[in-house]
Design a protein around this nucleic acid. Structure first.
Lengths: 349, 349
DNA sequence: ATGCTGATAGCAAGCGCTTTCTACTGGGCA
DNA sequence: TGCCCAGTAGAAAGCGCTTGCTATCAGCAT
């Protein structure tokens, strides 16, 4: 069968304890002995038994990364970056960082958390907006607290802070600020009739971006008609398409459209195009996040760039304790307004 | 500290053995006893210790899914589908399926495989094209064989079959056939000067799609000039942009461009546009895979649709043994030609 | 010389669970 | 009335590793 520590020990003519120490490298072992052990490991093709090791040591080298939708590059980029950062760690025993896709389902989120708790994960990174549902938030909070109790490090990335002190670090995106700046840009161009294609009502991200939008409108004295010009949908392209049509129906004179994210924005562009409207000639369109393809769209999309890769990588380092937590445990990650070709002054200024 | 099986047993006034049997549900336990145990589990907020359980049972409930680039929806969709399929399993003890992003690095691929072996994973799904490097292929093959020996089920998804019998099932994409049909479509439209933006030389996927392209050209007696009209790059948009420019430089009279995948195709479109060429007016462009945004591109992309979601979900079921392996262990997944607006007859027929 | 010290190595006790084997129970049947 | 069996529950032996403590030993100061 598979070789065990004892087999290696026998072959190297040392005790199992010594082999374990060589493998974990935290106890002095004479160079000659070490070499002998390493040779035996190699000859036997020995691979540590993770479960046994985790059981004995009461810790594991699993790091879980929770995402809402892995098919969405927004999450793919963050998760990939976190995994890369974790994989780069040198010195310590190699961590196994794994991505868990909740598909946006609250139950699956909880299930994954339980599964990770069961594995006694070393750390878990939770990415993306939270659900608004207080009951679910409480459940997640409780789960995270239990995990933290058991020694698991918790990092939130692109998610609003959680009350309590179980979270090691939070990297929160400044969705409000970004949303506000985006709409200010549009107002600055002269737009007055601005529609908003929002994300799903049940996510915090949706609300925050929308709040930024509202703030900009209010500051310009344009908030009156806000509600009539907001349509909610999901975070996909199809939803953007439909919502754009709906907004146009409600208010044919719309001169600009702000979308919950880039994917939705591109869907909206498609709808406008199909209606014979040009972007930005007839209607300006703006997105959020700045995914790689947004710069290539036609026209190139004005959007708020979120440093997904950097945030993901940082989350990975924080999860490993390679980087000190920000003061207060919370760092706000700001977006940068990227003005491109999809927004312009409205035709009839 | 955290509650253990023994705590639950004490509380329910039964032996640990009984608790274990209730939790694993494979041994008769009287309904009343079961109920009492379940209540105790609930009251103590007990969560099984995975490592201990895996150690004792010599199996784990971890399923690993290896992908080359999780930021690419090609992988995101497959991996997400596999995870969804695995998460849907009812009855058995909940599996923890996890995605591991190799970033295309051979070493990381091997590292992840070792890490999964260390965890005594129940199954591993390897997605996406393999590296051409024989040494690396052999190393992966050997690793998979060892995993299989240890009882891990192996499923390849979107990857060419491997010699030997360690692989439980292989879902191979018909990249050659798809590539061939795509180019035939172009030839059928009247194109004769067709450029090809290939993927990285080191991946099997690249070669297979290119072989299909070549086959179509040969059948039409057009293979002569093939080599001069192929440029290799990576699988990203940028690479498509650059390659398109290079092809145009080599052969300004090009009337069509086939790309290694949709992302690359869109990059190529951008390049053409920047050069003042219209698609498909001046140059037709075709992709491969049919990612969600390809249908929305302007113009909508002609491509070969690969059923990523279905394949991923099936791979998940195969990994769990929920579905019988295809005869011979290998199933070929065919692509479907999606003719859209980005291809048309060349201007000067 | 003699004891002390730092550097290594081994012993053995678990970590929390699964599972084989054994033990007990009551009812059905002869 | 006594025996056997199906149905349940428990005892206990590990699974393969980590780690606190102890043991050994060479070198060195005294």
């Amino acid at each position: 069968m598979t070789a065990t520590l004892a087999d290696v020990a026998a072959r190297a003519q040392v005790s199992p304890a010594t082999v374990s120490r060589v493998l974990n490298g935290n106890y002095p072992v004479a160079a000659a002995t070490r070499e002998r052990v390493l040779r035996a490991v190699d000859e036997l093709d020995y691979v540590l038994n993770g479960p046994a090791s985790s059981l004995a040591a009461a810790t594991s080298d699993l790091v879980g990364i929770l995402v809402n939708d892995i098919a969405d590059p927004f999450f793919g980029i963050m998760a990939g970056a976190a995994q890369a950062a974790i994989g780069e760690e040198r010195g310590a025993r190699e961590k196994l960082s794994v991505i868990c896709n909740t598909g946006g389902s609250p139950e699956r989120e909880l299930t994954y958390l339980t599964l990770l708790q069961r594995q006694r994960a070393a750390a878990v990174i939770v990415t993306g907006g939270a659900l608004e549902d207080p009951a679910h938030q409480a459940a997640v909070g409780a789960k995270l607290a239990r995990l933290a109790d058991a020694g698991t490090r918790i990092v939130l990335c692109g998610r609003p802070p959680l009350p309590g002190d179980s979270v090691t670090a939070t990297l929160a995106f400044d969705n409000r600020g970004g949303g506000r700046r985006l709409t200010e840009h549009l107002i600055g161009l002269g737009h007055r009739r601005i529609g908003y294609v929002a994300g799903p009502t049940e996510r915090t991200t949706t609300r925050h971006r929308l709040e930024g939008h509202r703030a900009a409108l209010e500051a310009a004295g344009l908030a009156r008609t806000l509600d009539a010009r907001v349509v909610h949908g999901s975070y996909d392209r199809r939803s953007g398409y439909d919502a754009a049509l709906e907004l146009l129906r409600r208010e044919p004179e719309l001169t600009a459209l702000v979308a919950a994210n880039d994917t939705v924005a591109l869907g909206a562009c498609a709808a406008l195009r199909d209606r014979g409207l040009s972007v930005p000639g007839d209607v300006s369109v703006a997105g959020f996040v700045d995914l790689p393809f947004s710069a290539d769209a036609v026209p190139a999309l004005t959007t708020v760039r979120l440093p997904l890769y950097e945030a993901g990588a940082r989350a990975g380092r924080l999860a490993l304790g390679l980087e000190p937590a920000p003061p207060g445990g919370i760092a706000t990650v700001h977006g940068e307004l990227m003005v491109r070709a999809s927004t312009a002054a409205p035709r009839a200024l």
